[in-house]
């Protein structure tokens, strides 16, 4: 069985790098890590579709074709995932920006100094 070793290596590298960035203390690096993590997840799902060597795209033509087509289902799922990942990443961006505007901190250690951050929620509810 020809394994997709390259995909496995790619997924491993992407995941490791993005989690490392996610664990960072600066907002911007956290953001970049999150973006790259969604890429990693997408490639991991893509690997499920099987080895693409020698297969054709999932576009079929009216006449029968000799070459097998690649699996379209994981691709469709990844399409959804890319778009949702974009919207969530955009939300995260605006959230981090908002935290920055509210507290002036662009790092998580900066956030710790603001102990009254917990009151924001009560103000919104009350």
């Amino acid at each position: 069985m020809t394994a997709q070793l390259d995909t496995a290596v790619l997924v491993a590298v992407l995941t490791a790098g993005s989690i490392y960035l996610c664990l960072s203390r600066r907002f911007l690096r956290m953001l970049f890590g999150f973006l790259l993590l969604s890429n990693a997840a997408n490639v991991a799902v893509l690997a499920v579709s099987g080895d693409p060597t020698g297969k054709a795209t999932a576009t079929v033509s009216a006449e029968a074709s000799q070459v097998a087509a690649v699996d379209p289902l994981p691709q469709a799922l990844i399409l959804t995932a890319i778009v949702i990942g974009f919207s969530v990443a955009a939300y995260l961006t605006v959230l981090l920006y908002r935290i920055y505007v509210d507290t002036g901190a662009a790092t998580t250690t900066g956030l710790e100094r603001d102990d009254d951050l917990g009151d924001v929620g009560e103000e919104a509810a009350g």
Binding site: M1, A3, T15, S18, L23, A44
Partner: peptide, 23 residues
């Protein structure tokens, strides 16, 4: 610790990609 966790998770996911293939 950071490096360890990230490398560990990365290896885990990569290994998963290898292991869960079934033609």
């Amino acid at each position: 610790w950071r490096i360890g966790v990230s490398v560990g998770v990365g290896l885990m996911l990569g290994l998963g990609v290898l292991v869960f293939q079934n033609d």
